[in-house]
Amino acid sequence: MVDTLGLGVGITLTLIMIVFHFSKGTGWQPREDISDEVLEHRAATVPETAFPEPMNRSIGGGAAGVGAAVTGETEAEGELEEGEEAVGGDDPSAIPDDEAEVYEVEFVKQGKTIDVKENTTLLEAGEGEGWDLPYACREGQCISCGGHITNGHAEEYVEHHTNQMLGEAELSDGYTLTCVAYPTADLSLETGESP
């Protein structure tokens, strides 16, 4: 009942597999892993960047747009030309805490009024209270952190530092970017509102 031909073929194939298993092979050795060297080389060719904190609240958020903020330095010498001002020279966050004025900001949706120093953004002040406010770039290059000042024209109540998204029409309607908006007067703010 046993097919001798089938049995013979099975035994022969088994023996061939055993021989291949215990043979030394061709002597081929894998090349040394160079992935670390490649990564180091690539890292050396990419210029250093200063990214804000991880962009965990938006899809693709945080990428610098066209016309991102410039340093204000000349490329050749690294110094400012005569009469040229450094970008960021009027940054309200540079005001020392003991010299900063304090304003009352009503966060309408949160139902609370808090004191905010003129050197603190509206977004930072809200986060300081433990509120989960929307944001993405933290540089005024998107509208994820948008808010609406119910008092009137935004520029009468806040100073925008590096606002690149809101035009005069939006500002006159009271819209603001909370990530770059520093209070200059008492105001009421609705967070999560975009033009």
Results as ranks from 00 to 15, higher is better:
Pro183Ala: 01
Leu13Trp: 02
Lys117Leu: 03
Glu190Ala: 05
Thr14Leu: 14
Glu129Gln: 15
Gln164Asn: 04
Ala63Gln: 12
Gly130Asp: 04
Pro30Phe: 04
Ala185Asn: 10
Asp173Cys: 01
Ile34Thr: 14
Leu189Arg: 00
Asp98Lys: 05
Pro195Phe: 00
Asp115Lys: 14
Phe51Pro: 08
Leu123Cys: 04
Leu13Ala: 12
Glu127Trp: 03
Met55Ala: 15
Glu139Phe: 05
Glu168Ala: 11
Thr176Ser: 10
Tyr103Asp: 01
Asn151Cys: 06
Glu193Arg: 12
Lys112Ile: 15
Thr120Leu: 07
Glu99Ala: 12
Lys24Phe: 12
Glu190Tyr: 02
Gln141Trp: 01
Gly60Met: 05
Pro47Met: 06
Glu124Leu: 02
Gly111Asp: 03
Asp98Thr: 03
Ala94Arg: 13
Pro30Ala: 10
His148Tyr: 09
Gly78His: 09
Gly89Asn: 12
His21Ser: 14
Gly62Asn: 01
Val102Asn: 06
Gly111Ala: 03
Ser58Trp: 05
Val180Phe: 04
Thr178Ser: 08
Pro30Lys: 09
Glu85Arg: 14
Tyr175Ile: 07
Ile16Ser: 12
Arg42Ile: 14
Cys137Phe: 01
Gly174Lys: 00
Ala169Leu: 08
Leu122Asn: 05
Thr191Ile: 10
Glu99Cys: 01
Ala63Asn: 12
Leu189Gly: 08
Glu48Ser: 10
Glu106Gly: 00
Val66Trp: 07
